[in-house]
Amino acid sequence: MEQFDDMYTDLIMEHSMNSPNKKNIDSPTCSLKGHNPNCGDEIELEVKLDGDKIEDMSFVGHGCAISQSSTSIMIDTLRGKTLTEAKNIIAIFLKMIRRESLTNEEKDLLKDSIAFENISNMPARVKCVELAWRTLDDMLNKKNI
């Protein structure tokens, strides 16, 4: 099962089964639910802002290893970023999943989230990997921030 190791890497598995980001945070600025009706994946993101900086983020919810680990790794990637930086990184991540090529600079910005590169080869799982990213993107766009 070589494909298993490509897709379910140690990093992804640890984040999906034992995520330090899966919890509630104290007095979040906002929270938003994301849902994949076909699979039943459900997450709720909590964001704490300090001015236009993401001071902290966490999530609760349930779903497959891909949706849960992607949420958790996204949080690690975006914690401490400004909202503009976060939007940019989300756009790069979605670009990667669409299998568009990335510059080295863009790849660096993705940090651990680059681990999901192989999921772009699995169209059936794209929704799972995108769930948290799209949910946060919607939240940022709705708030006009």
Partner: peptide, 14 residues
């Protein structure tokens, strides 16, 4: 402990 979608994806490998 394993979500059905992960089971299905991994079965697909076989």
């Amino acid at each position: 402990g394993i979500h059905p979608h992960d089971v299905s994806t991994m079965l697909d490998f076989s």
